[in-house]
Design a protein around this nucleic acid. Sequence first.
DNA 1: CACTTGAATACGTCATATCTTTGAAGCGAT
DNA 2: ATCGCTTCAAAGATATGACGTATTCAAGTG
Lengths: 231, 231
Amino acid sequence: MEIQGLTGRLLDELGPAIASGELPEGSVLRGEELEERFGVSRTVVREAVRILEGMRMVASRRRVGITVLPKSLWDVFDPMVIRWRLAGADRPAQLRSLGSLRVAVEPAAAALAAVHATDDDRRELSALAVELTVAAREADLNTFLGHDIAFHALVLRASGNEMFAHLGDTVGAVLTGRTEYHLMPHQPEPYAIRLHREVADAICSGHGEEAERAMRTIVTGALAELNQQLG
Amino acid sequence: MEIQGLTGRLLDELGPAIASGELPEGSVLRGEELEERFGVSRTVVREAVRILEGMRMVASRRRVGITVLPKSLWDVFDPMVIRWRLAGADRPAQLRSLGSLRVAVEPAAAALAAVHATDDDRRELSALAVELTVAAREADLNTFLGHDIAFHALVLRASGNEMFAHLGDTVGAVLTGRTEYHLMPHQPEPYAIRLHREVADAICSGHGEEAERAMRTIVTGALAELNQQLG
DNA sequence: CACTTGAATACGTCATATCTTTGAAGCGAT
DNA sequence: ATCGCTTCAAAGATATGACGTATTCAAGTG
């Protein structure tokens, strides 16, 4: 679900360059310069810049050029921005931000899911918790990661809140990144696994507060681990 | 900080039309049709569509046209999308989503602010709490609203989390909308005012848990009130 | 020194042409 | 009648030339 064509390719050059700080705040680009540098036409440059303008990473002004805006103005919830920042020099800061966001949102989502999840949601959640346990026991990290992502995305979706649901992919990106990052030398901790089952059980039986508490333990643990890794 | 020019104007026609459901999921537009309907050139249409594509509200495909994507794919955290939805038929759903989001995020932000707020932040927060109390006592609703928005935005910013900070404007839009919505026939509740002062005091003195608790009481109260209003 | 004026500049918009992709119609063979 | 291949046309994607317009900067003027 990405932007296609030359515009998309240019975007994937400019976005990361800005997100990583390679083009710092206040940098000025000229449209014609971008045309030459990337060998594309005005059309392509203008459309890519418009998209960046839509996410408030740049502003285009007559007689001045295309200015890189301060990070505080960026749409930091835009999945593209998040992906670019996770891929570049801003990765630690982005992981910290997302860690705190998870601590805030996921317990609330779990509590809501206990009320709003459909029967199908509950069944799938239970199944995922079981498969998670199996994959962990067999130390199958890739399978584990996939189920873990699906688990958290499902809780967020089952909350019935569209904004929470939308964070599913982002959380998935964090979990993927975390696995890649420290390469998961050890198998997942049994305690964390048990907590996932507790979340699933609590949501299935409609115990919102318990689901919230268990989920909070999971995400605060993840945040603590993250802070330890990042120093 | 809006998109300027004809592109911006077209965007402000198309965005709300899609957000309100006037152009439902699956609707197909042709670029040429938009050119004629709005009397603008291809350039303008394409750039506006590109921006909408960037927020995943539409997808453009050859031989088909510009298709309105299902709401579940939209970047629901994009400030433009939120504004458009708040302005149209989707307003109740958007208010509910934002209400839950506030319950999740603002208490966490308050807790973090107690640790990360600068001295200036703390001073400003105290001042705002006082001015809030004064405006409430004088039943000056506009002043009260302004300070209320500033208060919540400051807590979010002082949390030190850029993603939380970014929600300041959105929360402001919710508060503004709420005041406009039920026209605030009564003066703000003294209990809610006291809670704001508690939040400020707790953050100033570094008591994260107390700040979190007081803030949670505020936002859960707001959510309950909202649910009552919306049925 | 402050103000006005003008020219240079870079984006904004329009119009047109060509290329590329792709959905669908057409058509033949099994 | 259905499957599979070919062909065609529709619509977006890209390129390019022309002109409009706001904005900046500096020269000129009082």
